[in-house]
């Protein structure tokens, strides 16, 4: 079995604060995690959960208080290992006096690529991220979404084995998000390992082989999106239309959106509910199962964390 592409062991980051920096705030607590080679791993959590801290630790932008990490079997202190890593920072910002072509050429030079190879790769990459028409414009005139595309291009320009993306969908419009999703899927198809952080759960559910949920600086769960949540059916949802008024009690319980109504009932009450709605003149449009989603799992953890935080505050008082 090949070594994990990324592994961390008790990775911890504390920041000193207060007078004389005597107090410490833990931003990441004992992160033990493995990302297997060739998988797409999503790092999900609310803002301030510790996702970016973990990624910055992996990229040696900040240094751990305790613990260690390895990428492609090498310790993260090994700078040469960065030849095989691509990294997109959160809300990336680049030298705004350069054009997209120049900034990509600048970064490519650190990978010892020959001039002709650099030129060829840059052409392909600009096309891939949809910036070929803006290649000669200085980055100071770029929108946030365009900068995000430049960031993605520089992260994968040198064909890295491991790609680490910090909030890659941030600042992108729906088309841009779709394109980034396609790029991530293409990377997976090419056998690359992709780890990305996000707080957009639908992206994680759609793209990831596995996700790690981090809340309050602690990793709360790791697994395939489907296995993290309880997949049992929580109920049934009936979507129906109603022409004219009705006094049926079930109609009163439904949520109305325009001409349509949504009603959630227990599984065993489904047929009785449909009969009752039809009796009230409703036209049934669809019936679907309601399952727990990653979002609910995530929200439960966030709520539990907040409750714990509140409990600590109360006990401190």
């Amino acid at each position: 079995m090949p070594a994990p592409a990324i592994e961390t062991e008790n990775l911890t980051k504390e920041y000193p604060f207060g007078f004389l920096h005597l107090m410490k705030r833990t931003s990441l607590e004992g992160l033990n995690m493995q990302v297997e080679t060739g998988e797409v791993f999503g790092f999900i959590g609310p803002n301030g959960a510790g996702k970016s801290t973990a990624i910055k630790l992996l990229m040696r932008l900040i240094f751990p208080t305790a613990g260690s990490a390895r990428i492609l079997g090498k310790p993260i202190s090994d700078v040469e290992m960065h030849r095989d890593i691509g990294y997109l920072p959160e809300q990336p910002y680049f030298y705004d006096y350069l054009t997209a072509t120049e900034v990509l050429d600048y970064f490519a030079r650190f990978h010892d690529l020959a001039a002709a190879d650099r030129k060829d790769r840059i052409e392909r990459m600009l096309k891939k991220v949809g910036l070929e028409t803006a290649r000669k414009i200085q980055l100071r005139k770029y929108s946030k979404g365009m900068l995000q595309r430049v960031g993605l291009a520089q992260a994968i320009l040198h064909d890295p084995k491991v790609v680490i993306l910090d909030e890659p969908m941030s600042g992108l419009d729906p088309v841009g998000r779709r394109e980034v999703r396609d790029i991530i899927l293409q990377l997976k198809k090419d056998g690359k390992t992709v780890m990305f952080s996000t707080h957009i759960l639908s992206d994680a559910e759609m793209l990831c082989d596995r996700v790690g949920v981090i809340v309050g600086g602690k990793l709360r769960g790791v697994g395939a999106p489907g296995t993290l949540v309880d997949m049992k059916t929580l109920g049934m949802e009936i979507l129906f239309e109603l022409t004219g008024a009705s006094n049926a009690p079930l109609v009163a319980k439904a949520t109305r959106t325009g001409d349509r109504y949504r009603l959630q009932v227990a599984e065993e009450e489904l047929y009785a509910a449909i009969e009752q709605l039809r009796g009230a003149g409703a036209r049934i449009l669809s019936v679907s199962q309601v399952k727990a989603t990653l979002e609910e799992f995530f929200m439960n953890l966030v709520e539990a964390d907040r409750a714990q935080g509140a409990a600590v505050e109360v006990s401190e008082q």
Binding site: M59, R60, L61, V79, E80, M81, H82, R83, I85, G86, Y87, L88, P89, Q91, P92, Y93, F94, Y95, F107, F110, H111, G151, Q154, A155
Partner: peptide
């Protein structure tokens, strides 16, 4: 400006 982030992720000390 955090222009350093992407750079230090390259093989540069």
């Amino acid at each position: 400006k955090r222009t350093l982030y992407a750079l230090l992720a390259k093989p540069v000390r």
